[in-house]
Write a protein that binds this DNA or RNA. Structure first.
Lengths: 212, 212
DNA sequence: CTTCATTTGAACTCATGGGTTCAACGTAAT
DNA sequence: ATTACGTTGAACCCATGAGTTCAAATGAAG
């Protein structure tokens, strides 16, 4: 089956698996878990129904795996958005602003909203998807931000006595108002409004935590 | 049918209707829209299935009406929680603290969490439930709080140049961290933690908005 | 007692959809 | 050529559940 060239068949398998996971997330996001039918997922993935069951035993495990993949993809982007804080020039507020803007954009992204909706709606039926949140969700983001803020505090750029609290509140100020403004993620906001929200959040954060 | 005493039969009808709406919300909250079956709702309401269809044409309209009733009930409680801010003694922070604590408790309440989950999960299938949010949701609460803050600013108790923004940020600081801490509403927090969260939110708010 | 509306349980129809089976097909490894 | 494996489409079984029908029961109004 597999010498070095054996990959070609295996590649084919992996490609199908990927296609299935992506198609599954697309359909689950559009229809919700219960309303999504496996036929539609197979069609979306360009694959036959038995092929789906050849890779995943259940609709349930298909759901779990597709969520996990989507969550991982979303997390990577969000961690990357914190990059400006690694080396903020001489203007910390500007760096915060930039990170805030990128986070807002990511958080209002369609995939992100769909993921959040799915988590909320199915967390009671699939309690184990909480692990996904723990591993790839807001918790990791808060920790990463807290790390940055701790270093910046040591450098005397702000006074975050409790970096975890500061990080939590930064994200709350930034993302909290989104729920109401985007109508639970169904409306897309104009760029100008996003920038204004980032600005307002950073302003309040700076006042509360003595950003230089 | 109905002289003055005619209410008795009508009362019976109204009672059934109420029972159906409450039972429906209970079951929808536990199972989600698609998984909830009308049989179970009828059983929960102590009523026969045809009776349900005698009051509501559809499963869908049943859903809408039960959501609306629940949302209205939740809103009233939340508005009432702002009462301490109507006449804060000489200690505004204490009044904010008290309101914050009450809001946190209400927001982590089972009915409240269930309502939020249902809104999130079905907002794509029932776009019209957004009206419910508009009328009885966080928007009204934010406006009510903004009113209080505006009056307090005129009285010189804090400096909220933009009361709407201040109200939005107060609620964000207070409720934003809940999502992560309660694991999307599945965990109940100890009283001590709730008080600590209220304290932290009020502290940051006071620093950012110059509460006396 | 009669009447009218409502409720009730049970049975029924019908559509949807999860999961399986199977024979036919393609394709790469030996 | 043969073997082995993944894929495919179509048909199939079976459970669930929305919504309806109906005859029997309930119960208040007159």
């Amino acid at each position: 089956m597999s010498t070095i060239e054996g990959m070609s068949t295996t590649r084919g398998r992996i490609d199908k698996r990927q296609a299935i996971l992506e198609g599954a997330f697309t359909v689950f996001a559009r229809e919700g878990y219960a309303q999504a039918c496996v036929q539609a997922i197979a069609r979306e993935a360009g694959v036959a129904k038995p092929t789906v069951y050849n890779h995943m035993t259940d609709k349930a495990t298909l759901f779990r795996h597709s969520l996990e993949a989507a969550a991982r993809a979303v997390l990577d982007e969000r961690i990357a958005a914190l990059e400006p804080l690694a080396d903020p020039g001489d203007d910390l507020r500007a760096a915060l602003q930039q990170a805030a803007g990128r986070l807002l954009r990511l958080h209002t992204d369609g995939r992100s909203c769909a993921l959040r909706r799915l988590l909320y709606s199915e967390v009671t039926h699939f309690p184990d998807i909480l692990d996904i949140v723990k591993d790839s969700g807001p918790d990791r983001l808060t920790r990463a931000l807290a790390d940055r803020l701790a270093r910046l505090t040591l450098a005397g750029r702000l006074r975050a006595g409790d970096p975890d609290l500061a990080a939590e509140q930064f994200l709350a100020l930034l993302l909290g108002p989104l729920e109401a403004r985007t109508q639970l993620g169904t409306r897309t906001l104009p760029e100008a409004e996003l920038d204004a929200m980032a600005q307002a959040a950073v302003d309040a954060f700076a006042r509360a935590w003595d950003v230089s």
